[in-house]
Amino acid sequence: MSLAPAWLRERRMLPDRWRDEHTRTLIAEDRAGESIGAGAMWTSRVHPDRYSVDLVVAPGHRRAGIATALLAALADLQPAPKPFIWGAAENDPAHEFVATLDARTIQRSPLNTFHTSRAVRLRPHDDVAPAAAVSRVALEQAWADMYEWTHADWHPMGPDARGALVEDLWDEIDPHLSSIAISATGAIDAVLLVFIDGGRPVVAGETVSRDTTAGTRLLEGSVRRTFDQLAERWVAETLLDAHETDPHFAPLFEALGPVTRWHRIVEFRP
């Protein structure tokens, strides 16, 4: 049984310095020694340029400057000054707090669940095949290439991040549900992976290059195949890990959605 108060149990607050000096956790207490707030910051091995941050304050102590104090204390612990990055549903009241810090929106992603039955709205493509049809090395390379360019403009990868990105990939995906588009030369032009390490499948991908010819059409065929495969396994709903700036995936949202709920990611300095 957890000894944490109810308001803290749903948050993943790891012990202070659980990995290194870039992973810090602080607890705010009242005069009686009771926990009334918590804050954590950490860097990603894939995206080391910013600190991810999470803050939570007990319901009876909100709007009293506790979150601001926790954030300032975390900033003081940074070995090197870096911006913070944080995200939540657009209707999350915490966006009002980060707005006071001049937070800048850097990305939005759909939060809706998508019905696999909507695959019939998309066209199949002859160049699309199961991801299991290619080698592990080839798929990892395609995934890393895709991930790098789709994040370059708003959350760039670190110089040595590719290994960390694909380190646990094969434990997280189903290569038979996942899809790729293969060119006449055998190159992978698009990759769409199905992550099955959570409660509900998550579909993510894009073209391997930003300037892939007929990229939206290749993504359309890839999504069609993957959604069909999910439906055959009686999976009625899935999530998308995609961005409104994805040039070939975003145009498909309307056919699959429409998107009515968004996750907004912001950057700010304390």
Rank of each mutant, 00 (worst) to 15 (best):
L3H: 13
W7D: 06
L8K: 10
E10A: 15
R12L: 15
L14Q: 13
P15R: 02
W18I: 11
D20K: 07
E21P: 04
E21C: 11
A28S: 08
E29D: 00
A32T: 11
E34C: 13
G39S: 08
H47N: 03
H47Y: 12
R50T: 13
R50W: 11
S52R: 12
V56K: 03
I66F: 06
I66V: 06
T68L: 12
T68K: 14
L71H: 07
A72R: 13
A73L: 05
L77G: 03
L77M: 12
A80R: 13
K82W: 01
W86T: 05
E90M: 10
N91W: 14
L101E: 01
D102F: 05
T105V: 15
T105I: 14
P110N: 07
N112L: 05
T113L: 15
T113F: 14
H115N: 14
T116H: 07
S117E: 12
R118V: 01
V120E: 15
R123K: 12
H125D: 14
D126S: 12
D127E: 10
P130D: 02
P130A: 04
A133T: 13
E140N: 10
A142P: 05
A142K: 02
W149I: 03
T150Y: 00
T150E: 05
H151E: 04
A152C: 05
W154E: 00
H155M: 14
P159K: 02
D160A: 13
A161F: 02
V166K: 04
V166Y: 08
D171N: 11
S178R: 01
S183T: 13
T185H: 08
A187Y: 02
D189M: 09
V191K: 01
L193G: 00
V194K: 01
F195E: 11
G198K: 04
P201W: 01
A204T: 14
V208E: 05
S209D: 14
D211H: 13
G215I: 09
G215S: 09
T216I: 08
L219A: 10
R224N: 15
Q229G: 15
Q229A: 15
L230H: 01
E232M: 12
V235T: 10
A236F: 09
T238V: 15
L240Y: 08
L240T: 08
H243S: 15
T245Q: 07
T245V: 08
P247C: 05
A250V: 03
P251G: 09
L256I: 08
W262P: 06
W262M: 10
R269H: 13
R269W: 11
P270M: 02
P270I: 03
